[in-house]
Design a protein around this nucleic acid. Structure first.
Length: 260
DNA sequence: ATGACTGGCCCTGCCAGA
């Protein structure tokens, strides 16, 4: 089974790229973040014509997540733990496998958190704690579980071309990275790091200041795997070529193949 | 080089992103 995640930075602006990606890479499941539209405005018909079911948790203007799947899925919207949270940043699906099993997949858009020393950073840390608490429950199910998305976390210095430039950024502060490690220490595996120790592997390049041309990238989009998923991991690919397209997203897709 | 972009929005400068 092929599972991909991509922060599209507006699904309506990126529809042609999205349809091309589905056709080229044929993911069984594609997690989207920053769709930036309400459910009614989601390009459902075009995606269904391409052979995919769409589970959408939209929001006006900002955020918004979705899960596209070749097979019909059972869907849950929102991250438990805060009924007052109005931001659409989490959607989860139970995906059936050919063999009669299931893989549980979440599409996550973790808060950016900048500027630090504001309530935005506090919200980020609180959201990470909620994700950790909920993941602890999910892991008790002992299922293949894939938590995929834009974590807005640079885990280590080797995950940035110029780590010093991110010293006081919400994506790289020690507290952010510590909370990310706490999540991993529940028993999750960072899929990319299960396959390589190499640096210079990025998933985001800013639109500004020639970041792409200078390869001023960061690795912030991650697929975190339960033991049952990690044991089935076959390959991990960052689809870097997507950043070279006309009118690209500032993030590129990252995908895994797992044996099911 | 103290710069540099993109998307959404009750439509036009401002917020958000990272």
């Amino acid at each position: 089974m092929r599972i991909a995640t991509w922060n599209v930075n507006s699904v309506r602006q990126r529809l042609e790229h999205l349809l091309g990606y589905l056709k080229e890479q044929q993911p069984d499941v594609l997690c989207l973040q920053e769709i930036k539209c309400q459910d009614e405005a989601f390009p459902r018909a075009e995606i269904e014509s391409a052979g995919y079911n769409a589970a959408v948790h939209g929001q006006k203007t900002f955020n918004g997540v979705a899960i596209l799947s070749k097979r019909p899925v059972e869907v849950t919207l929102g991250l438990p733990g805060d009924d007052q949270d109005t931001q659409s940043r989490y959607i989860e699906a139970i995906v059936p496998t050919e063999a009669g099993g299931v893989v549980r997949v979440a599409s996550i858009y973790l808060p950016n958190g900048n500027p630090i020393n504001t309530d935005k950073y506090a919200y980020k840390l609180a959201w990470m704690e909620r994700l950790t608490n909920y993941t602890r429950e999910l892991l008790k199910l002992e299922e293949p579980l894939v938590l995929a998305g834009d974590y807005n976390v640079i885990p280590e210095p080797r995950d940035a071309r110029d780590p010093a430039a991110w010293t006081n950024d919400a994506l790289f502060l020690p507290e952010t990275r510590a909370r990310f490690r706490t999540l991993l220490h529940l028993g999750l595996t960072d899929a990319l790091r299960a396959t390589t120790d190499a640096g210079d592997l990025y998933t985001f390049w800013d639109y500004q200041a020639g970041a792409w041309q200078r390869n001023f990238g960061i690795r912030i989009d991650h697929l975190l795997l339960s033991p049952q998923a990690a044991d089935r991991l076959q390959s991990v690919t960052i689809d870097k070529y997507m950043r070279a397209a006309e009118k690209p997203s500032d993030h590129v897709p990252i995908r895994i193949d797992i044996k099911t």
